[in-house]
């Protein structure tokens, strides 16, 4: 209180500085994206001359072209069809395991947990060659499943880590009272625990959706058919096809980025809550 009344100028300067930094960072964060999105609407002959000029006319032709002849519609559907099962599967498996690691007491729990955490340190590049052959043996090459199933294993360390941290912080009393009410482990999990971990699930959902949506390395190797390509793969292919056209590339980038930005904005409140409760305290 005292310091506030004493140094009003210092406080104002501090406020101004804070806002200056925040607003500058805001611009740096968003301008490249906004500029890319607007470039999608600029006629290609204008954009090819100078991609940074201020647009004088706008058109939807680029988007139409990219969407149909550039097959962005196919890529988009594939991305969705890959993301949904992948996210659901990871959420289910990790919340089950997270509950056991966080709330149940059993022999070897911590050892198994550390064994799972080991996976977080291993780069995907270190697994990709054998992984390819494993997927091939399962007959999954060139299918959307090839971009889903491996992640039930590969995404597990982070997902389990996060869910465990969250479950651990839930009070034990909840389980005890549930047990008294005649619940077994599964019904406790289903009716008592699961509803409480919504924030953690949203956070994990955003992370996993984001990774799935943007995933490139493994898909690049296991899928080469145009009908199964997801957006990032499609986008890379699309660049090869329309290298001479800045606008179409901007459209491709827009189609790839906007949906994920929307998903994030929708879930951001729960996302932050989930991160707060989960990752940090772990």
């Amino acid at each position: 209180m005292r310091s506030k009344s004493k140094k009003p100028i210092a406080v104002t300067v501090k406020k101004l500085l804070t806002y200056a930094v925040l607003i500058l960072t805001l611009l740096v964060s968003i301008m490249p994206l906004i500029w890319m999105w607007q470039a999608a609407l600029v006629p290609s002959n204008k954009l090819n001359v100078d991609p940074f000029a201020i647009p004088t006319s706008l058109t939807l032709d680029n988007i139409k072209r990219a969407w149909t002849t550039g097959k962005m519609n196919v890529y988009m559907i594939n991305s969705i069809l890959v993301a949904i099962p992948r996210v659901l599967g990871v959420l289910l498996l990790s919340s089950l395991a997270g509950y056991a690691f966080g709330k149940l007491k059993f022999k070897g729990r911590d050892k198994i947990f550390s064994f799972m955490m080991f996976g977080m340190m291993i780069p995907i590049q270190a697994m990709v060659i054998p992984l390819y052959y494993n997927l091939q043996q399962m007959g999954l090459i060139n299918t959307r499943l090839a971009m889903v199933i491996p992640y039930f294993g590969l995404s597990m360390p982070f997902a389990v880590f996060m869910m465990r941290a969250f479950f651990r912080d839930l009070p034990d009393a909840l389980i005890e009272s549930a047990t008294i009410d005649g619940c077994n482990e599964f019904t406790t999990f289903l009716y008592i625990m699961a509803p409480l971990i919504k924030p953690a699930l949203s956070a994990l959902l955003v992370f996993e959706f984001m990774w799935s949506w943007n995933d490139m390395f493994l898909p690049m190797l296991v899928v080469y058919n145009d009908t199964s390509r997801t957006l990032p793969l499609g986008l890379m292919f699309f660049f090869g096809k329309y290298t001479a056209d800045h606008s179409l590339i901007a459209v491709g980038v827009t189609i790839c980025t906007l949906p994920i930005v929307i998903v994030y904005t929708l879930f951001q409140k729960n996302f932050i809550e989930g991160v707060t409760a989960g990752a940090v305290k772990g």
């Binding site: 964060s29 968003i30 490249p32 490139m216 957006l231 990032p232 994920i260 930005v261 994030y264």
Partner: peptide
Amino acid sequence: FYMPAIVSMVA
């Protein structure tokens, strides 16, 4: 502030 983090590396 978090937006750049969610965009695909290709983009």
